[in-house]
């Protein structure tokens, strides 16, 4: 197993019109091996979606990198123009399945044209006919009626075909890394399961192998991810294997998150889910000390002044000096 994706002390900020900086992502580091699925979970506003842009090296104002590095297969994505990133990185090295993607296909173009546009943007000089052939080969792998699907408009497809097409198009150019940003959050539980099954099927067919899966549903990650990173207020507060994080959380925030989860299990009904009171800190203001201190049930007086760093507790990373 080789490391293919490295994120090193990545910090990102938004520059507001008034010149203020909002530090949306702070000191995020992790590495991923070929074939790994990493789940990233946290509340909305914790910086998940900002991090996605950073991981692709796509900095469109007002988003700017503050410091740190992102490397895919050893190649840095930092300090490159959006044009360079779009041409040489997106779809080929890193590809994204965006939020609400399954209704995002251009309704007035045929699937084959949408897909061909993606290929043509990255393969200069390849003629349309050749592209269509490549497309057909790839879509055949997905177990669909390829000719029918490719020649249809998105609205003519069934929901399942549309999902396959979206994921198919996102992975056309064999990206080394796929980032799925809340792909199932807007779906009902049944459709969610169908989409996850599809993703597993594509993994099995080796269409792609390494993935970051972003969601706010921790229980879902338990089934999807190998490793889970929990984000809070722009930082990773805990990272370990899926089993470790879900069944034996160590950071107070992860514990609180698990406590807020619901379950349909009869044995679980006696356990009342408890919400986390309060709101995450305002990232436009400088924060001293632990970011979770305000809401932490086991807060100590010194927590508010002492910045927390990642340390190893029980074979996983935790950003809390009192975690055991």
């Amino acid at each position: 197993m080789s490391v293919i994706f490295e994120v090193e002390n990545l910090s990102l900020h938004y520059l507001t019109r008034f010149g203020n900086k909002i530090h949306a992502v702070n000191d995020v580091s992790f590495t991923m091996e070929q074939g790994e699925i990493l789940g990233i979970a946290g509340e909305s506003g914790c910086g998940k979606s900002t991090l996605v842009n950073g991981l692709m090296g796509l900095f469109i104002p007002p988003l700017h990198p503050t410091s740190g590095d992102v490397r895919v297969g050893g190649e840095s994505l930092m300090n490159r123009s959006p044009k360079d990133i779009r041409q040489n990185v997106l779809s080929r090295k890193v590809s994204m399945i965006p939020q609400g993607a399954f209704n995002a296909l251009n309704p007035v173009r045929k699937v084959k044209d949408i897909a061909a546009d993606v290929m043509a943007a990255h393969m200069k000089g390849m003629d349309r006919k050749h592209i269509y052939e490549r497309l057909k080969e790839r879509f055949d792998l997905f177990g669909m009626e390829t000719d029918k699907v490719l020649n249809s408009y998105p609205i003519q497809l069934t929901a399942g075909e549309r999902q396959r097409s979206v994921i198919g198009i996102s992975t056309l150019l064999n990206p080394q890394m796929v980032i799925a940003d809340e792909p199932t959050s807007a779906l009902d539980v049944t459709t969610q399961k169908v989409v996850i099954k599809l993703i597993f099927e594509l993994l099995e067919k080796k269409i792609f192998s390494t993935m970051i899966f972003i969601t706010h549903e921790l229980p879902l990650l338990r089934h999807v991810a190998d490793n889970i990173a929990i984000m809070y207020a722009g930082q990773i507060v805990e990272k370990g294997t899926a089993e470790q994080v879900v069944f034996d959380p160590r950071h107070p925030y992860t514990k609180a998150l698990m406590g807020a989860m619901l379950s349909a299990d009869a044995e679980q009904k006696t356990r009342k889910p408890t919400a986390i009171e309060g709101a995450p800190p305002n990232l436009a203001k400088p924060i001293s000390g632990c970011r979770f201190a305000e809401r932490c049930p086991s807060v100590k007086p010194e927590c508010k002044n002492r910045e927390q760093v990642i340390r190893i507790v029980g074979e996983r990373q935790v950003r809390c000096e009192y975690a055991e």
Binding site: V189, T190, Q192, K193, I196, K197, F200, L203, E204, E217, L218, P219, L220, R222, H223, V224, V246, F247, M261, S263, A264, D265, Q268
Partner: peptide
């Protein structure tokens, strides 16, 4: 269809 932590859901191959 609910991805419950305590139950088998979908197995990854």
């Amino acid at each position: 269809d609910i991805p419950d932590v305590n139950r088998e859901w979908i197995k990854r191959a």
